[in-house]
Design a protein around this nucleic acid. Sequence first.
DNA 1: GACGTCAATCAGAAAT
DNA 2: ATTTCTGATTGACGTC
Length: 228
Amino acid sequence: MAIKLLQNHDCDLDDEDSPRTIGISLEWQWEMKTYLEQEMEPRDGEDRRCHVKELGTVSLFSNSTSAKRDIDDSGEENRGDLKGGARKKLKLTKKQSFVLEESFKQHSTLNPKEKQTLAKSLNLQPRQVEIWFQNRRARTKLKQNEVDCALLKKCYEALTSDNMRLKREIHQLKETKSRVLPELLYKQFPAAGTCPSCDRIGTASIDTTKTSKTLLVRATKSHSHFFS
DNA sequence: GACGTCAATCAGAAAT
DNA sequence: ATTTCTGATTGACGTC
């Protein structure tokens, strides 16, 4: 079956005249997909949406300027089926949706020729293909925004907790410093008495031994560090 | 000015 | 009955 499909559509895949070979090659992909699904999927438990009545092409109606563009595209005015004055909404077939999805994966926008080709291969109005792509782009963007928002929210939460942790750490360090530093200085200048810069500790006279001088120089040099 | 795209919105139909 | 999905409309804006 798969080989048969390939043989049937060989020429379509080589069709250079068709831009990006969207419509027809996707059509055979659809046939393959349908075939594989039939072979692989169990008969029961199908998605209920699959049983939607597939209306196929239901045309548009509108007085908008956009719709007038469509009239130009198709060469004729195409008004929707009316049911007691109510608009009958088009429901794309599974095949149409599949082909549109696949071509959207390739390119999220269509040039006029591609639009025409796709519309023709799907038996839709070019305007309907245009609208489908338009809506698809909008909804893709919306979903992407939701994903981005969720990601940003996670980043924000992580940064907030990090920030709190760092603040706690700073607070603890400050506490430790104010408690321990006087003791450290006193131990460094046991006989030096007063700290040369701030007069905080002791009152004893300076020891002139070499060791004490060295200590004093070292402490003085690093003093700004201690009290920064 | 024609045309294409987008954002906002409406509305029909299916799903829950 | 309400929610969700999705085709369709409208008006604004940018580009050529």
